Simulated scan of single mutants.
Amino acid sequence: MPKTIVVPEGTSKPLAPYSPGTLADGILYVSGTLPFDKNNDVVHVGDAAAQTRHVLETIKSVIETAGGTMQDVTMNHIFVTDWANYQAVNKVYAEYFPSNEPARYCVQCGLVKPDALVEIATVAHIGKK
């Protein structure tokens, strides 16, 4: 099956061998997205809400680059470093998915950089282009 690598304009080089997104058969898989700036440094240190907004805006840019919208999201995989941040993450998350919420799960774990408080990976069905 042919696939298309999706890289929004201005995306920095990933820390590991992966692409921001992969589109195959109308399904977009967005890699785990952390609150990184262009230099792969963590932004909004200590602020789970601001980090969540940054992550979701980054995911949105991948989806839009592939020709979709946030309404096309069908599944989110959410990783938090501390359950104490769960409410802040959910408050911002609800702004991006106010209705017809996608399926999701959330787990507590360590992330690749200690100052990162949240990571989200996404699946979106944007249709065959």
Rank of each mutant, 00 (worst) to 15 (best):
K91F: 06
K13E: 15
T22D: 00
V89Q: 05
L34K: 15
K38S: 13
T65M: 10
E119C: 12
L117C: 10
L15E: 14
L34D: 07
Y29R: 03
A88F: 05
H54F: 00
D72S: 04
F79V: 10
G46V: 00
S61F: 08
T52R: 07
Q71K: 11
T11E: 06
T58V: 05
V118D: 01
A84F: 06
K91I: 10
N100P: 14
P14F: 04
E95C: 11
L34W: 14
A24K: 12
A103E: 14
A103D: 04
G110K: 15
F36Y: 13
I5C: 11
Y86E: 10
P20I: 07
K38N: 11
T74D: 07
A48H: 00
R53W: 03
T81R: 09
G10K: 01
I59S: 02
I120S: 08
I5H: 10
V45E: 13
V89F: 12
V42L: 13
L111F: 04
G110M: 04
Q51H: 04
L111P: 02
D41K: 15
S19M: 13
I78L: 02
N100Q: 09
R104H: 13
L117H: 05
F97E: 02
N76V: 14
T22H: 10
M70F: 05
R53T: 01
I5Q: 02
L28A: 05
V30D: 08
T58L: 03
K129C: 09
D82N: 15
A48E: 00
Q108T: 10
K38F: 01
K113L: 12
S31E: 14
S12M: 09
I126P: 07
N100L: 03
V80S: 01
V55D: 04
A124N: 11
T122F: 10
L117W: 00
G46A: 03
V107A: 11
H77K: 12
L28F: 04
T4P: 06
G110P: 01
A24W: 05
K129S: 11
K3Q: 10
T69C: 01
Y96A: 06
S12N: 13
T81P: 15
L111I: 14
I120M: 12
K13W: 13
L111Y: 14
G67P: 12
S31G: 13
R104Y: 15
P114M: 01
E57Y: 00
T74I: 15
V89M: 13
I120E: 00
S12Y: 10
Y93S: 06
V73G: 03
M70G: 06
V123D: 05
K129G: 13
A49W: 07
N39Y: 12
D72C: 06
M75Q: 10
T69W: 06
D47Q: 00
N76G: 00
D82F: 04
V80M: 01
R104G: 11
L28Y: 09
L117E: 05
L15M: 12
T52E: 12
G21Q: 04
L23K: 01
G21V: 03
Q71W: 09
L23N: 01
G21W: 10
A124E: 08
T74P: 04
H125W: 06
A49L: 05
T65Y: 11
A24C: 13
M1N: 11
T74M: 01
Q87V: 13
R53C: 03
A124Q: 04
H125L: 15
G127C: 14
V80G: 05
